[in-house]
């Protein structure tokens, strides 16, 4: 706080301030331009796009590309599957991270260091793709939506962040509840869970984003078209060379073009994150802050 006040008092900006602000603004603009361009490409007809790909304000706007996206149900199917994966998968993540992280935050119990070391090893060493593939398929999860949910259970990094938070809860809180006769399950449910709401909210957001962006398990394990997650469908669309316009409504056939359809698809897939991100950004940063206290 103190530093902030001192800095505000300084009225004259020196050359460093200008360098800083110009460099950072350029970087920020370089991030915005591709998104802006994507949006523009998705709302113009082909003619305008071919004339000049650098569109500041479109001469002509159309929703034809978006109509083309919804002329086929695949994106909607993907939304549904990903929504199911998020709705079932994230509570599964939170349950595992909460119970495991809380148990490991306990001061001393037989076997604690062993478990902790085993867990940390998994951060640096894994069996690789093929053994992983064989394990999941031998559990009977091939072409099963559970293959999108179960293998991503505990993200060790998030679990350690949660554990770090639990360790900082004052012991007196639990002890006084114990004196009042609460059993351990009750302590966990009505004392620990409420006070750890901030950290669980942060982990919740991280898990939602991870699940929303997931496509690798889909590529490995899913064959049925209707079970593909959203990002995998998007990937296939991006890799499509030429779109078949014959089954689109005739009114839009001359307006759509493959770059435009792709742009519209990308935009639809990233829209939820884009809308929510500015409001939840601080929680993500808080997660890093809590995580970095440890190191």
């Amino acid at each position: 706080m103190k530093r902030l006040r001192i800095k505000k008092k300084r009225k004259k900006l020196d050359i460093i301030d200008y360098i800083v602000i110009v460099t950072l603004s350029l970087f920020a603009i370089s991030i915005i331009i591709p998104f802006y361009n994507l949006l523009m490409v998705s709302i113009v007809p082909q003619k305008v796009y071919l004339e000049n790909p650098f569109i500041m304000i479109p001469k002509m706007a159309t929703l034809a590309n978006y109509k083309a996206v919804f002329s086929d149900s695949s994106i909607l199917d993907g939304y549904l599957i990903t929504l199911i994966v998020v709705l079932v998968g994230v509570p599964y993540n939170l349950f595992l991270i909460f119970t495991f992280g809380y148990a490991l935050s306990k001061r001393k119990f037989w076997g604690k260091n062993f478990v902790l070391n085993m867990v940390i090893i998994t951060m640096f060493f894994s069996g690789g793709t093929i053994p992983y593939f064989l394990v999941v398929t031998s559990l009977g999860l091939f072409d099963n939506i559970l293959a999108l949910i179960l293998p991503y259970g505990i993200n060790t990094f998030y679990m350690l962040i949660a554990r770090n938070f639990f360790q900082q809860i004052p012991k007196s809180l639990e002890e006084s509840a114990k004196i009042d006769g609460a059993n351990e399950f009750r302590i966990l449910w009505s004392i620990i869970l409420p006070v750890s709401r901030p950290i669980m909210a942060t982990i919740f957001l991280f898990c939602v984003v991870d699940r929303w962006n997931e496509w690798w398990n889909g590529l490995l394990f899913i064959q049925t078209k209707e079970l593909r997650p959203l990002q995998l469908i998007l990937r296939n669309i991006i890799n499509t060379q030429n779109f078949n316009t014959s089954n689109m409504p005739p009114a839009i056939q001359h307006l759509v073009f493959s770059e435009g359809i792709k742009a519209a698809n990308i935009f639809i897939v990233m829209l939820p994150i884009m809308l929510v991100y500015p409001f939840v950004q601080k929680h993500f940063i808080k997660g890093v802050l809590i995580g970095s206290i440890k190191s």
Partner: peptide, 9 residues
């Protein structure tokens, strides 16, 4: 999901 695949090496 971590140790069975590790055994798989």
């Amino acid at each position: 999901f971590a140790y069975l695949p590790m055994y798989g090496v």
